[in-house]
């Protein structure tokens, strides 16, 4: 990267990074056909970023659903419509909290791991070794991790949402005594498959998965080959992903819904 060239201006630097990141995306996309040979590597990465993130996603989903139900119950009880609280939990989770919180957790759990791993691979010449063994690291290292992030995010988001609704049910029905039948029937009557599930859960989490995986791979790939360089790159993955997720969320919500 030529980021250090003449300007130390934060804005130009950030714009430069975004530009290089965009070019890097094109390189990864071009490498995807070549990476299909390394299907096993993609599956292995899917295990690392997806399956290994399950615990944190499930725990957090459960608590988000529980606390949301608790808050909503108290507010809605003022209007005598506590039976709608489950529905609101579901819609809020599907549309916003599910994709956004999953993506933020994913950036912290899997994104940092990807950045640190690739950064260290470069620092220890493993990337150069692959190039010399005529194995394209873009196809063998970058693309599988990118694809794994893309596939894992929607799945993790579904798990998060399911656990959130379960958490809401736990608090609303089992603890606060909302009628079980009302809880579910209100929810199924109000939640719209297209509006809430497809364009909420699926589209948003696909977009967030792509963004987080791209940033994580890019930061690792371009990290200076030093311990300090890798440390900063890992931090930048979390910071840049979080900003990108929330900004993109606003844009997607404005256009999709």
């Amino acid at each position: 990267m030529n980021a250090r060239m003449a300007n130390d201006n934060v804005v130009t630097q950030a714009l430069g990074q975004i530009g290089s990141c965009g070019l890097f995306l094109l390189q990864i996309l071009a490498a995807i056909p070549r990476s299909l040979r390394y299907g096993r590597e993609t599956v292995r990465q899917l295990w690392f970023v997806g399956a290994m993130s399950l615990t944190i996603i499930m725990t957090c989903g459960l608590f988000v659903g529980m606390v949301l139900e608790l808050q909503l119950y108290h507010v809605l009880s003022m209007f005598g419509s506590t039976s709608m609280s489950g529905t609101v939990v579901a819609i809020a989770t599907y549309r916003e909290l599910g994709p956004v919180v999953t993506a933020l957790l994913f950036a912290g759990r899997a994104g940092t791991a990807i950045t640190a791993e690739i950064g260290l691979m470069r620092a220890t010449d493993q990337i150069a070794a692959m190039e010399l063994m005529a194995v394209d690291p873009l196809a063998y290292v970058a693309a599988p991790r990118f694809l794994a992030g893309l596939v894992a995010m929607p799945l993790l988001c579904c798990v998060f949402c399911a656990l959130a609704v379960f958490g809401g049910h736990l608090v609303g029905v089992s603890w606060l005594g909302i009628d079980n039948g009302t809880f579910w029937s209100n929810m199924t009557a109000t939640v719209d498959v297209w509006q809430d599930i497809i364009s909420g859960v699926i589209w948003k989490s696909l977009a967030f998965g792509a963004v987080v995986a791209l940033i994580a791979v890019f930061q690792g790939y371009t990290a200076p080959p030093t311990s300090e360089g890798v440390a900063y790159a890992t931090t930048r993955t979390v910071v840049a992903s979080s900003i990108a997720i929330l900004a993109l969320d606003f844009v997607l919500t404005a256009f999709l819904m």
Partner: peptide, 18 residues
């Protein structure tokens, strides 16, 4: 890459895949 398939390279610092 085609050429490199015919070249073996020993790195100064081993560079094994960890």
């Amino acid at each position: 890459y085609e050429l490199r398939e015919k070249i073996g390279y020993l790195f100064q610092n081993s560079a094994l895949l960890t």
